[in-house]
Amino acid sequence: MNPPPNPQTHPIRILLVEDNPGDVRLTLEAFKDGKMDNPMDVVRDGVEALAYLRREGAYRDKPLPDLILLDLNLPRMDGREVLAAIKADPRLKFIPVVVLTTSKAEQDVVKSYVLQASCFITKPVDFNKFTDVVKGIDSFWLSIVTLPPGAHA
């Protein structure tokens, strides 16, 4: 039997689904600023996100992420559809999905939870607060939550 993943030696692997390069960089910078060096892959739309998670094409050798950071407004297939597809897929549905968006609209929040998002976070305008949020995500999923085994398969 595999021992439970040790957070010290196995930082959680993150998939960021985000189309805006400014946001991608900002998220990376926030991780850097928070002294977090989680391995992170970035895909730019919903179709690519599902291809990544289903290990199709160029993503054949990619391990499954421990955590998905998902933007809601994406080209081709938006975040709500991606979320629904993840939760409908038995191999993917245990991966926690953090919906990270600018939207504070009630219906987005409700819809996301209906679709079983693990949590819904509005990206703060203030960069320092954003860094705090990213740190919070990391420490919560890193040290508090026990992730399902097999996530590193």
């Binding site: 400014g22 946001d23 900002l26 609209a105 990206k123 305008v125 203030d126 960069f127 320092n128």
Partner: peptide
């Protein structure tokens, strides 16, 4: 509320990053 906040956040965040 949504679409204007996005670019605004870019401006604010990157300026803050510059300051930082």
């Amino acid at each position: 509320s949504h679409d204007l906040q996005e670019p605004l956040r870019m401006i604010a965040s990157y300026t803050q990053l510059l300051v930082k």
